[in-house]
């Protein structure tokens, strides 16, 4: 079984471009209903299928995502 991972999204840095959603092979990310202080909807985790591949963090133009993976 694939290793488990987790992502931490900095809500205030996210501009809601949704490129991370398109890049996630496990469809872990979705968009929030709420907005951040700039008025952008932000990316949130919607399930726990994350494998810690870091694709979302690599593609994020605003470096808003930090990725963890079990050793």
């Amino acid at each position: 079984m694939a290793k488990k991972g987790d992502v931490v999204i900095q809500i205030e840095k996210c501009k809601g471009c949704e490129i991370c959603l398109a890049s996630c092979p496990q469809s872990v990310l979705g968009m929030s209903d709420k907005v951040n202080s700039k008025g952008f909807k932000y990316a949130v985790k919607v399930n726990s299928a994350c494998t810690g591949c870091a694709n979302c963090a690599v593609i994020c133009p605003d470096a808003a995502i930090t990725v963890y993976r079990e050793k």
């Binding site: 987790d6 133009p61 470096a63 963890y68």
Partner: peptide
């Protein structure tokens, strides 16, 4: 899983912490 020893990717130290002024989704 959110522990320093499990970290696989974070923003590089060669960039500052300023929020980028670029439009959402910009490749810059």
């Amino acid at each position: 899983l959110i522990k320093p020893e499990n970290l696989v990717y974070e923003k590089t130290n060669a960039m500052t912490d300023r929020v980028l002024h670029y439009c959402p989704g910009c490749g810059h």
